[in-house]
């Protein structure tokens, strides 16, 4: 493995995804192309996903992904190559580098789970080792979290609002910070794989320029 690949692999520890209205279609497009040996854990807040009691949404994603998708339980250990989904009506919080915790505290940005809560808690634990992704949605939840990721030296990706079913959420993230990549959905998984497995920074990125 050359040095740059090794550096990038050791820099990033986790991927965070925030998504709201339109997530049913958007999430599978991002997750399903990712290979079985994907090297990082992926933590997701999908606002008001219809999982409810049947675990429907988790099943729906599992049918479409090679990675295992789990609805997070309190004290859930974090493993590389697994996808963790915030349960309905609970905040997903990174407790430490090894485990997740849940909280039924007040709604943040009118949301529980809230994207900002996940992103904010993850920065406290992983510092610059994060890749934050904001997809389609109608609320500004996640914009603060993205700015925090950017300020601490993580990587930020937003779905190109022009391609989003509901553009307000990625637009709010783009307005809040200087996003590294603004991409249509179908380019996001490829960018992640290039970066993490091949160690290649796409040339357009702010992260590339600052390295």
């Amino acid at each position: 493995m050359d040095q740059q690949v090794a550096d990038i692999r050791s820099k990033y520890k986790a991927i965070l995804i925030g998504v709201s209205a339109g997530g049913m279609d958007a999430l599978p497009q991002v997750l399903s192309p990712l290979p079985e040996d994907f090297p990082l854990p992926i933590l997701i807040v999908q606002h008001s996903h219809p999982s409810g009691d049947g675990g429907f949404f988790v099943e729906y994603l599992n049918e479409r992904c090679r990675l295992e998708v789990i609805e997070a339980t309190d004290n859930e250990p974090i493993s590389n190559g697994k996808v963790y989904l915030a349960p309905a009506d609970l905040h997903l919080v990174v407790a430490d580098s090894k485990s997740l915790t849940l909280s039924s505290g007040e709604k943040i940005n009118h949301s529980r789970p809230s994207i900002d809560v996940l992103f904010d808690s993850a920065v406290d634990v992983y510092h610059s080792g994060l890749i934050g992704i904001i997809l389609t949605g109608a609320t500004p939840d996640g914009a603060k979290g993205m700015r925090k990721i950017e300020k601490t030296g993580g990587l930020t990706i937003a779905q190109d609002p022009a391609t989003a079913k509901t553009p307000a959420m990625p637009q709010a993230a783009i307005d809040a910070c200087s996003i590294d990549y603004v991409l249509p959905l179908e380019d996001i998984p490829g960018t992640l794989v290039k970066l993490l497995q091949n160690g290649i920074w796409p040339k357009t990125s702010r992260a590339f320029r600052s390295t």
């Binding site: 905040h91 919080v93 407790a95 915790t101 909280s103 505290g105 007040e106 809560v117 808690s121």
Partner: peptide, 12 residues
Amino acid sequence: YASASLKRRIQH
């Protein structure tokens, strides 16, 4: 108390 959530709630 779970410190990550507690700190967040106090800050809020």
